[in-house]
Each structure stands twice: as C-alpha cells, then as structure tokens.
Design a protein around this nucleic acid. Sequence first.
RNA 1: GGUCUGUUGGCUCAGUUGGUAGAGCACAUCGUUCACAUCGAUGGGGUCACUGGUUCGAGUCCAGUACAGACCACCA
Length: 882
Amino acid sequence: MENTANNMDKTYNPQGIERDIYDSWEKSGAFTAKRVEGKKPFTIVMPPPNITGQLHMGHAMDCLLQDSLARYHRMKGDPTLWLPGTDHASIATEVKVVEKLAAQGIDKKSISREEFLEHAWEWKEEYGGRITQQLRRLGASCDWSRERFTLDEDYYAAVREVFVRMYEKGLIYRGNRIVNWCSVCQTALSDAEVEHEEQASFLWHIRYPASDGGEGVVVATTRPETMLGDTGVAVNPEDKRYIHLHGKTVTLPLSGRNIPIVADSYVDISFGTGAVKMTPAHDPNDFEVAERTGLAILNVINPDGTMNDAAGTRYAGLSALDCRKLVVEDLQKLGLIIKIEPYTHQVGTCYRCHTTVDPLISLQWFVHMEPLAQPAIEAVRNNQTKFVPDRFSKVYFNWMENIRDWCISRQLWWGHRIPAWYCESCGEIIVSREAPDICPVCQSSRLKQDEDVLDTWFSSALWPFATLGWPENTDDLKYFYPTSTLVTGYDIIFFWVARMIFSGIEYMGEVPFDTVLIHGLVRDALGRKMSKSLGNGIDPLDIIEAYGADALRFSLCQGISPGADTRFSTERVESARNFANKVWNAARFVLMNLEGEESLEGKSLGLADKWILSRAMEAIKEIGEHFEQNEHGLAASKIYDFAWGEFCDWYIELAKADLFGEDIQRKQSVRAVLQFVLEALLKMLHPFMPFITEELYRYLPGREDESCMLSKWPIYVPSLHFAHDADQMQGVMDIIRAVRNLRAELKVQPGQKARLMLKAQGDWHSTLDESRQHFMRLASASSVELLDASEQIEGKIVSAVTSAAEILIPLGDLVDFKKEILRMQKEYDNLSGEIMRSQAKLNNDGFLNKAPESLVLAEKQKLEENMMMLNTMEQRLIEMKS
RNA sequence: GGUCUGUUGGCUCAGUUGGUAGAGCACAUCGUUCACAUCGAUGGGGUCACUGGUUCGAGUCCAGUACAGACCACCA
C-alpha cells in the first residue's frame, strides 16, 4: 500500500505496526554496532536480566533509559553499541528450578548434579528466550548479534581466568571462616546478600556460676540456644566489676563444661551486664574475640539449621527455635534465668528466601578485598567514573571503605563451578584454567573438583569486558572498552556496580564506564514496591498490549529525575498514549497539506514561521543538553511541550490561514516550515517513542525509503533562531489569547461578522510587548469598550492577530491601583538588584579581562537598558503614588 | 547508631549557576464545518512543611525544627 496521508487512520493504532517495525529494524542490521576507527564510540552494556522469570517495570525503566541514550547517540553519528544479555543468576535460578522440580515430585537430592543441570538448562532456554522477546517488544535497539549469557562457554573461560589470576596473586584464598549461612538455600551467602530485618524478641539474662562455686557472671543474649556452643565469657579489661574473675573459669550450665573468662576491649561496659557469652562458631564478633584470645571454637549447628551432636544428646536434632524453648525451660528449672526483657533488634535474613541466617564456621573461598577496594575508591574519587546523581558516590565510598572479605563459594549446582581440584592422595589444592590430569606434587591422578559454584556476582562483575571477548584481546574489546554509561537501579550498586569497577581496574587497567546513571524504583500507584507477594506488580507486556510500547516508554520517563523513585499509573500511560495520538494527527494534517518535498531555502518567513523555527532550534539545543546530562525527564517534557504546546496549539493553527489562503508564496513558505519542523520533531521524539516516529517518518515526502532511527539528529542552526521575532510572537500570542477572552466575555457569537475596536484614552505604547501587558491587564479587568463587532474571529485566529494591531487601548480607569503599585514596586526592586549585579560584574577585573568581549558588551548594554527602564519606572511609580 | 533523600495547587510530580511559581490528571463553563473528543478554548485552585540567616531579591543558598521514606551497621 502506498504511504499517503489520506489513508492514514484517524487515530494512531500501535498494535498493528510495532512488531513489523521492530522486525524491519532487526532484519536491516541497524542494531549491529560497527567499529569506525578514529571515532569515539558510545557503548552501553545492558545489566543482564536474570533468567528467573519475566521482565517487570524496573526492567522496562532500565531498558527505556538505555535505549533512548543509544538511539540519541546513534542519530548523533556515534558508533553505538548496546550489548544485551542475560544472567544465569545462580542462587535465584536454582531456587526456581528446585521449586519447579518439587512441583513435579522430583527431589533435588534424588537426582545427580548432571541431571539437575539439564533441568536448569531447560529452564534457561525457556525463560532466557522469553526475556529477550520482551525486550524486543519494548523496542530495545540492542545488538543481538553480540548477545551474551553469563554461563556461555567463553564467558566461563573469562571467569576461570580471573579466578586463577586472583588465586596466583593471593587475592583469593580458601579458609575456615565464619559465614552467613542460609539453612533453607543450604549455602553460604556474602555480606551483601544478607538483609537486615527488625524483629521483636527478648534479651535473656543467664547466670553462669563460677567453677569454684562462686556467683560467677550474668550474661545477656538474644539467642539462648547458642550457649551450648559457648567456649568462654568476655569482659572488658577496664571493667572493675570483673577484675577479680580474670583468668578464672565459669561452668556452662546444661553442659557442665568449664569455660574461661577472658578480657577483650570489644565488650561494651555499659551495655547489658558487661559480660558477654562467647560463641565463636556462631557469631562473627565472638569469632574475632576467639582469634585474639585463643578461645576454642565449638560448632553446635548443622547446615540444615538443626542442632548437632556437640549440643548434647538432649538437644541434638532440634531446630534452633525448638532448642531455644527447651534451653530456656531447662535453665528456668535450674533458676539460672535472672531476667527476660523484651528487646527488638536487627536480624540478618537471606535476600532470596528471607530465612534468618545462621552465622557459622565453614570452609569457603574468599576474595581478599582491601587491595581491590583501594584503587576502586580512588577511581571514583578522581572522577574517572561519575555517579549520576553524585550523592550515590557517597553510598559507594561508605561501602567500599568498610568492606570485608567476600565469600564467593556457594553450595549450589547452577553456576560457574570453582576451578579448583583436590588431590585425594596428598591433599594438594590445584587451581587451574583446565582440569589437570595428575597432581603436580604426588603425580596421583585421583583428583576431585571442588563441588561448589561461584557467587553469581563474581561473574557479573566481569560483564563489561568478558562480553567483549576478554581474555582474548579482540577488536571489540579494544574499541568499545571502557564503556560509556551504565544504567541501573540503586539497589545493585554494591552487588554489581562496585564489583565491576574493581574488576575492570584489576583486569583491564581502566574503569569499566565513564558514567553510572542511577535510576529509582518503579513503584505502584500507592508508592509501594511492586512485588509478587503483594500482587501489585504490573506486567509491562499488558500495558504494551493496551496502549503501545511508545506510550509505556514515554510514561516512564515523564517527570522522572535521576535516582528518584517514580510511581506507575495507568493515567500517565493514557496521557502518553494521547500524546502519541496527538503527534500522529499533527503529522497527518501536515502531510495532507504538503505537495511534495519543500525546502526552507529562499522562502520568505513570516513572524509565526520565525517563531516556530526559533522554538524548534531551542528544543534541539535543550534536548541535546538534557541527553548529555542524562536528564531524560527534562528532555521528554521539553519535546512534549514543544510538540503539543507550541507546534500543534499555535503554529499549526496559525498556518491554517496561509494553507487555506490564496497567497501562493505564503502557502509554500508555510509548507516548508511545517515539513522542516515536523521532521525535526519526529527525530527528537524518536529516542522516546521509536515506533510511531519511525512509522510517520516514512510518510514524509522524500523520506519514503529512509529510517528515522538511522537519520541524523537535527542540527542547531543559529540563523534559524530569530530571538527577537520570537519575543514579538510571544506578544502576539498573548494578544490572541486576550482577544479570545474578550470575545467570550462580550459574547461575540461564533461565525458572527464583527470587528473589535478598542479606543485609547491615555498612553499608547507602540511596542508590542508593552501593549500586550496593558491589554492583558485591561482584559482581565474587562475595562474595554467594544465599538463594533468583528470579523470572523472564530476559526480564523490570524485575522484576529491582524486586527490586534488595530486595537487601541485605554489605560487607567479600572486598574486596581493598589495591586498595581505593589507589583511595580516589586519589579522596581528586582530591577535595581539586577542593576547592582551588573555593576558589580563590570567592576570585576576578572570579568572584564577574561570574559569574552561580546559578553562584556552585552552586560554593558543590559545595564544601560535597565537604567533607562528604572528611570521610567521610578517616574511612573511617583505618578501612581500621587 | 551512622548516612542519604523528600516535604511545591485535590492527586502524581517538574522547576540545572538565586530574578514576578509550572505540567499532567482531576474539577467548572463553553465548543464537534474537516488533523486530532485519545480534541479545542477559557477558568478556579499554591503564604513552595516550619523558624531563623545571607541577599536589592530565596521554592532555589546556609543553620535549626517537625514529619515521611531509603540505605548502611558485628552492640551481646
């Protein structure tokens, strides 16, 4: 079907065209990034969505911000790469697969590792594909030819490379340390994976009698069951109450073991009883005290959260909570519970399943963080990477500066298996890129690979360079690294952003990105987090079905500002949908009135033409600046205001008079302006609403075979910026508005032939601007005198403009003097302030010598003008006051 | 306990070097002969949380107060 305006629908119907447009983009290879030597590329790596399920609004926001940046830069002519991919999400996916298997009656324990992984890969095929399809529906212009998955074979090679290098450098070690243990997920967790929740509980005060029969000490605890693993009691060395007990022992109730009293400054004299029970196996602080004072370590909790044999036969096998009840009961019978007081405290929970984590001693792999954190802190401090908004760099510093070693091993199957082998003959640990055949120490071939996998974030930390082919030194890697902007939510600054920064510095010698653009969460209409448990999540796909991807995209960036949360509401989407329709119809109107391609060249421009061109130039300038500053919200509202409030509301209306008129020259000029501005408008809107703009672009005369996506971003042309005329136009617009007002007030009927004549009584101000002000004032006070009915104001606003020039204005009479004087007084004050500032500037040597001459001249001119204005004002004020 | 952010019309939010308060939605009145009722015109509605300070001038800068929220944290 031929693209003509006449067969365009009256309303924009996105459902029919979005898929076709996306397919045509993808088929044309337009998304594929090309390296152009000598040109600086614009690179974004997509935060890889987890393959655990569907995209949610957060992803839609992520995607929209990145896509609009990518599209903007592509149109600017930068070689643009937006690299997509998905994350295997070790623990999260494993939990899902286990659930799925359980639903089929399959217990993970009953199948082999290989069988389980087969199921997991099936899951990946199903959900990984679904997610990339959803991204396509959103219009993501990413380079699918470079798509990556964190568990790809070559990606795993990068992971092994890093692991081996770190191990050889001493940055990775294996050790028995206290870790956060989730008894449901049955794995260790890093500190970042623990969330703190407030819990109401009790503080139990328990007496530990002295071994020599003395009173002993009273300790306070929130976890009485852990006393079974106590190996000592700590007091502060300065605490006079307990000096006599140093070196003595107390008898641990219920177990009868004698445990020492040690002195350590960790203990706070003023809190509780000043004596702290030490459970080194199940409390990180106690562990540290034990290391300093040589206390024994006694593990009493099993990995599944139950008590083990070391807890004593009476308690072994009980869950921690059941054990707690029994222990308290038993102690009460012995009269050793001194006090139970209510107490709320923060408890660590697993970020996946929200089970309370048990700190316990376990043999795990760790990353030694301090040497990595230092350069990563420096890089941000030196602005090699900038956070937008800047306040997030503080959050980053705070975390990096207090960082502890990172536990990277997970007792899971789905993930990157740790490239370490143990010799079953001599116990040697072999860390290697490939599976070794024999033990280098004892030549034995009885080698067994570590069962654990790596923390999923260990591999995501390599994303910016592993996706580009590292450790091979590929052309892509050389050209596209470091990347330009990373777009993500503030919730994964620690998990991901920080770790990418130190990894990039360590392995590439350079930070992975210039800018980190942080966006907020998308909340529901009531401001709550969208979550499955609340059931308040909204599926982006449903919104796209109902309103179109463009509407969803635009609604997500209207009124957002970096780092701030935003609320999702269908009203907003509706408003965006209406906007799309408005643009559609504006284009339809313009296209219906064009006759072939028109150029601005040699056209004589009227006031309104100059005005809209000036406004377009300003929009080009502003929107470009907003994109450079990552102010998507401001860019979006600018294009909205320009398209609707200026182009549609004013210029198209004014253009009608010429389009339907007799003057051939005017007709051609207006057509040229309409076409020029419409084209610029479509381009500027394209990063936000790619589908509708692409569709409309193909209707433009002379653009039938071109693509908006691949067109050049509009150029700011200073000679098309008619500032002075634009000011005048503003005056005309105000007059038009005032005339409309008057017409309504004076009840001039539509269609009635009439002529508005207003008679002057006092001052007649010849400049349009002043007459406008007076006119407005009078209009609102309705102090005009209608001499005659006017000519066809309705529908032909332009004729009203012409007659506006004939409107004569009476000054005085009905103006509210009191208000007027106040207003003028304020204006007068402002003006004198302005003058003082100008004078100060002009007295400043720095300004006079260093600022460009034009600026100095402008300042002088401004000062002069202001002085004159001030004088007139002064006189008028005096007159009015008298 | 530490850090950060917000408080602007009925609702949701903009407001980028300090210069006479904005938008969308909602509301009221009027209007469908032709781009658009997913529309147009007009209008009402805000002492910009509070108190002080800097300034000719403060929503905007500074200090404090109140309320709301977020993040971090090894006080048993």
